[in-house]
Amino acid sequence: MALVSLVSLVGFLLTPPIIGSVAELFGLRAALGGLLLPIFIVAIAVAFTLARRQSAPVASAA
């Protein structure tokens, strides 16, 4: 849990300068799309994988 908390804080910490710097180069729309969309797609893929792993033992037990 502590690790999750720490990673969350790091994300919160790094978001403003990274988006600002990328926006300076490519514009704010590209910065939001180019940074947030890939991160979110990866997160969704991970969430689905985790859900499958967690539900697999339940299914086999059933």
């Binding site: 804080l9 978001t15 991160i39 997160a43 985790l50």
Partner: peptide, 19 residues
């Protein structure tokens, strides 16, 4: 994996708040 999920949520929140 859980950390990546939490990170994505917080980045979204930070981006929405600030930008």
């Amino acid at each position: 994996g859980i950390c990546i999920v939490a990170l994505a949520s917080n980045i979204l929140e930070g981006a929405a708040a600030d930008w």
